[in-house]
Design a protein around this nucleic acid. Structure first.
Lengths: 217, 217
DNA sequence: TGTATATTGTTAAAAATTTCACTATGCACC
DNA sequence: GGTGCATAGTGAAATTTTTAACAATATACA
């Protein structure tokens, strides 16, 4: 029997679990009912043990000798990750990226509902994007408190990211996803996550170079 | 003296080095000429030893008893990472996210020049975004070969990501950054990197929940 | 020129993560 | 019901990554 463990769960595990859900959904659409850790691992590009280990943090979801029931596993992971609820999100900074995210229906599909957007540019205030009216950033703290928002997305230019974060913190936000390429400081009880896809481009660029060097040896 | 090592460099190191560059640039703008690993670590949110270790993969860039010269270090890292050159990039899939990336001037600033954009939607073909005309995807392989493109960005819907990847591979691309939430398969010699910021939102959501659970105990 | 101080580069230890190997168990078929 | 096969769960081993500790060395100043 599985006992609830209070081990710290690796961040990488969380990221992988989200990938598993993604691939399980594809399989479900293809009508696949049962999947083994080996096959799932193959399509997620990881090791089968890794999958079993990752799942073991949360419980026992499979049937020995059989595999995992696709639907059940997907639901179990979603529940474990808190993917089975919706989260109210606000956005600070309505530039190109912000607009794209506001229009990104996958966010809502995944349970992240952007309930308000803020910008300090008077030309942008009042503009409506994907059904959301851009408001003045000064209104942010009160709004987030009123609407019970838990997550803030920062899509400002880097030099304004900290200020955006301060507003969010003042508004009692619990977590921040910062798309601006700059570090921010926040109190211990606020979860901060950084997203910078330029890093991924560098990673690819670097690996291309390495590949070529290795090829020469 | 530093001997060139042919150790495998952790992916995490590469990501951190990009962050160091980012923070060093901020410091340079503030007129800071010399920085210690401790202070840089503080502003990057990492451990000082980590910084020294990361740098040690590439050489010796500091002065004992003094620290690192900001400008020199930045340049050294950029060179080590291949950030000192430009890379020609093509994009497949011109949706919301694609458009945002096309207009994202930070990409160009960082040396990633989007030289062409492709989509299979006839309504999008011919449209011009940020000075780039959207072309039919069927033209992709020949174009990338002709233009010597090395990196491809996939911003299609997930179900079309593999097809996009196939075109890119056919076009002799060396690396792919896949923004679509689906795994793709590519030959060994093609570097693939996945970007999915929804994972980051999940990570924040999960950590918020965990925080709250921990708070209750 | 010597000494104190600061801080890097580097080696060793610790911690975290991944992979392996094996045990347990469920199902299908005889 | 028993036997063989497939595959999950799990503890241990291997590997990787991070952190700590310290030796080397540059600067400042007596």
């Amino acid at each position: 029997m599985h006992l609830q463990k209070y081990e710290r769960i690796p961040r990488a595990t969380i990221a992988r679990l989200a990938v598993y859900v993604q691939e399980l959904e594809v399989m479900e659409q293809q009508g696949i009912k049962v999947i083994s850790s080996e096959k799932l691992a193959w399509s997620c590009g990881v090791n089968p043990s890794q999958i079993r280990k990752d799942l073991a943090y949360f419980g026992e979801f499979g049937v020995r000798g059989v595999g995992y029931y696709v639907y059940e596993l997907r639901e179990a992971i979603k529940q474990s990750l808190g993917m089975d609820r919706t989260w109210n999100v606000v956005m600070v900074g309505v530039g190109n990226l912000g607009r794209a995210l506001l229009r990104h229906h996958l966010l809502r599909k995944r349970g992240f509902v952007i309930v308000a957007a803020f910008d300090c540019d008077p030309f942008k205030i009042g503009e409506e994007i994907a059904g959301i009216e851009v408001q003045c950033t000064s209104k942010l703290p009160q709004s987030t408190i009123d609407m019970g928002v838990e997550i803030g997305i920062i899509t400002t230019p880097p030099e304004r990211a900290q200020r955006a974060a301060n507003y969010l913190i003042e508004g009692g936000i619990k977590g921040i996803v910062n798309f601006a390429p700059s570090r921010i400081t926040a109190p211990e009880n606020v979860v901060v996550e950084y997203v910078d896809f330029i890093h991924n481009l560098f990673s690819v660029a670097f690996n291309i170079t390495q590949h070529q060097i290795k090829g020469l040896l």
